[in-house]
Design a protein around this nucleic acid. Sequence first.
DNA 1: GCCGATAAGGAGATAGTCTCCGTTTCGCGG
DNA 2: CCGCGAAACGGAGACTATCTCCTTATCGGC
Lengths: 206, 206
Amino acid sequence: MSEGAAGGRRQRTDKQRNRTHILEVAEELFVEQGITGSMDAVAKRAGVGPGTLYRHFPTREALLAALLQARDEELEARRVAIQREVTDSRAALTSWLQALNEWVTAFDGLPEPLRTALSKGTSPLAITCQGFVTTTEDFLGAAQRDGAAQPWVRGRDLFLSTLATAWARGAVMADESSPDALVSLMRTGWETPARETAPGRSEGLS
Amino acid sequence: MSEGAAGGRRQRTDKQRNRTHILEVAEELFVEQGITGSMDAVAKRAGVGPGTLYRHFPTREALLAALLQARDEELEARRVAIQREVTDSRAALTSWLQALNEWVTAFDGLPEPLRTALSKGTSPLAITCQGFVTTTEDFLGAAQRDGAAQPWVRGRDLFLSTLATAWARGAVMADESSPDALVSLMRTGWETPARETAPGRSEGLS
DNA sequence: GCCGATAAGGAGATAGTCTCCGTTTCGCGG
DNA sequence: CCGCGAAACGGAGACTATCTCCTTATCGGC
């Protein structure tokens, strides 16, 4: 499926090579500078012209989607692992949200295009996100059935909250602990106060 | 104090007129298109050259700060009103957060520059925000003393959450109710489950 | 080695931010 | 009312970023 449809001649090797190289370079640059690093800078660093870059990835979003694909698979793997290993539904949801949080902070500024993708709906990023929303709903549903999560919370709310929390990381306000505080705040929000332990801070969710 | 220092000649009337007109026009444009509407568009609509616009407001942030000033005062007034009229500290904090939420959603996309301002610290916007953080701390402190709010929450966390929640409004995900859900989630997060009523949804915070 | 398809490269169109400087307009004193 | 100097205006244009189009180079198959 990955190589064009009707079996004409095979894909040129330089194309594949360029694609791979662009991805390597883009990953590097986005890790360094966040996802606002300029497209032309990616092209330049990859040693190709802008035209080539845009033929491979017509938009920044497409490039991002390609970059995230590897991480998507990793996240899927984590989902499977959690579903297999964690029996407590409350802990499972917590673990999943933590995994989601890591995924969403892969690059600086990632929450922004994700939010945009969600609004517009039509984009590889949006489809990926939609899948994760569904997974979140699964975990949440289980937790709710066990009385571990507030019944009125919805999966998309938790997903959006995760996005928003990650977005807020960009502020830090001369304060390292705010991101954790927001995660705790959110957690206290969805959790039911079933157990007598103080919610939030305590158990590692860092 | 507002008119230059040593009493030279008085400010030219056309300057004041332009300033006022630019503000009117910018308000209009930002309400229509969100705060990303182009600076040149503001200048054009105001019938002045870009140079004039930038002499009055050297950055988009400065323009924004000037635009928000009126609303800042309104928010201050609400703070005073709440402090005078609302005796229950829990309700007071809720009211204040709602007021803050309205302030922060005055223009589409406002949370972004606010977050940036908070990070960098040096900007009129940052100073304003800092003041509101302090106010939030006051309300929160009172609520905590009354056992109405979780003791581990901090004012800046609530402020950042409000910002993040407003930011997430931009997504909507084909779903009108998400913004309210996020506000409820946050509220459930900071509130203590003192009363037996189900938290969140019920009492109007819409 | 040649040919045709395919991809590369890069100039340049478009758009946004922001600056510099020649020109206009205003306020004031005569 | 007029003229002068300061103050403000306007817009050309430098710079940066995104994205397109067309010419040129390169690859794969024969």
